[in-house]
Amino acid sequence: MPGKEMAQRLSVVLTERVNPEMMNCEDVVATGRYPYTGKFGILSQEDWKIVRESMELVRITELANRDFNKISDGQKQRVMLARALCQQPDVIVLDEPTSFLDIRYKLEFLSILQEMSRKRNLTVLMSLHELDLAGRISDKIACVQGDRIDRFGVPEEIFTQGYIPQLYQMTTGSYDELTGDLELPSVQEKPEIFVIAGNGTGTSIFRRLQRERKAFATGILWENDIDFASAKSLAAEVISVPAFHYISDEQIKQTKKWINECESVICTLKESDMVGFAKALSNLAEYAKIKGKLITYP
């Protein structure tokens, strides 16, 4: 395909930094009209209209007269997107467009792309390192391993149990497909601390213990508790109950055994949380207190 025709159908946003001299943002965006202009590259009224429209779409009209070299990375990235859009392509290719952006600009940038692809029927092809963002914005994901595509499909097919660690050949730590949480490797020694947790109160303690290289056991957690994933990754031992099930006597017995073996017990739940279903946890905390092991973690 000849260069010009190609340029009218495909445009790019690259990681390569551009340092145009003495160009304001509008000039930079206007370079996108290049494949449509004549021998001397002079833009028509129509071209300028398209330039302004693209700038409105990406919401950078207020940057029009600013020097391109004096705006932030996030703004630059949006200017380059406007440039790519005013090339009026069918396909737009972006190389790690969000890598240098902070979370606010990441979200803004991706939501603009999403809007474009829906409204203008634009095919967006991009490389991303952020798994969480990839899983949310993509219609289809191609997983690249080395120099080949290992798997191609909708996000649900990609983020299935165990695939991501395999794709990245992860040997340490863990990755949770559902939440996208990454955890460092757990301390696999004999537990010295037992944590009574649940309802999201435990995760920060689990991570802290991991940082301090202390092995711990935790329970009793329902498997649909939001603390469960991090507990599974970080604790040496987890006592769990299947989702929506009652706690069995067997599990209580087991927990008491662990409390006996550990030096200290931390309870992250408040008394008022441990009611109904979770009454048993209150009893366990009471048990630890009697044994003189219940501590408040500093």
Partner: peptide, 20 residues
């Protein structure tokens, strides 16, 4: 003059603008 203006944006972008 037109190709030069494309080239000022860097080689990769110039290529995408259809410049040999």
């Amino acid at each position: 003059s037109k190709p030069i203006s494309a080239y000022q944006m860097g080689e990769a972008y110039a290529q995408n603008m259809g410049l040999n």
